[in-house]
Amino acid sequence: MSGTRNILLVEDDRNERDVALRALDRAGLGATVSIACDGQEALEALGLEMPEPSPGRPPQPRVIFLDLKMPRVDGWEVLERIRQAPETACIPVVVLSSSDREADVRRSYELGANSFVLKHFDARGPGTYIAEAARYWLDLNEPPPARRPT
């Protein structure tokens, strides 16, 4: 199992971000969480967009939690770019959306999402379901092997 337990959270809504961060923190997963406030920032964080990361690539996250509806670059575009780039093609992506529209769910899977989680109010505690999903992807799921440098 890889030593890095980092999560990339892509979410434009500050309240959603705070709820997710708080839940992840309280779950005691021992994970570090990076934040991207929209799609553009997510691409930059993954080294898929200018400005170029310097020096070397940033450490790739074990899992990406991706909101769909965001200003500038939306979640689908980010997902498409992630799957197109060899460096990020295998990173598990969990789509977090408030839409359960069939077309949105299908499109997400077609573009290569590994999971689709509907945002909702969790009576057990705000964002608990997010922490549960994170636990699954960090602890239970076998991550893709790291890419060998060529």
Partner: peptide, 12 residues
Amino acid sequence: SPLGAVLNLAAI
């Protein structure tokens, strides 16, 4: 999304 925020923040 704002209504969810109200619920979540109130819960917190």
